[in-house]
């Protein structure tokens, strides 16, 4: 799980354009409240698909699924990434 969360955090650091350091946020912290804009969240989704070599389902492609490291990890688990 730690390894997966580390990789999620790397993607967010690179593409999320947060207004704070991702290391200062807990796994359940709200990324939108930390400044991630809608456009940046799409780039995070694309980078996650690339980094984990998966495709999210349309039902997962919504704001709430990408609002925290935890919720992203759960979505990745649902599409078959092993924690």
């Amino acid at each position: 799980m730690d390894e997966m969360n580390d990789q999620i955090r790397r993607v967010i650091r690179e593409h999320g354009h947060l207004s704070v350091d991702i290391d200062s946020l807990a796994d359940d912290a709200d990324l939108y409240q930390a400044g991630m804009a809608s456009h940046a969240s799409v780039n995070v989704m694309i980078a996650l698909e690339d980094a984990f070599d998966v495709e999210f389902l349309d039902s997962m492609l919504k704001r709430s699924v990408f609002e925290s490291v935890d919720s992203i990890a759960q979505a990745l688990t649902e599409v078959g990434v092993e924690a």
């Binding site: 809608s38 456009h39 799409v42 989704m45 694309i46 495709e55 999210f56 389902l57 349309d58 492609l61």
Partner: peptide, 9 residues
């Protein structure tokens, strides 16, 4: 344009 990059159907 941005959403089309990631949406599936």
């Amino acid at each position: 344009a941005s959403l089309l990059l990631i949406a599936k159907e």
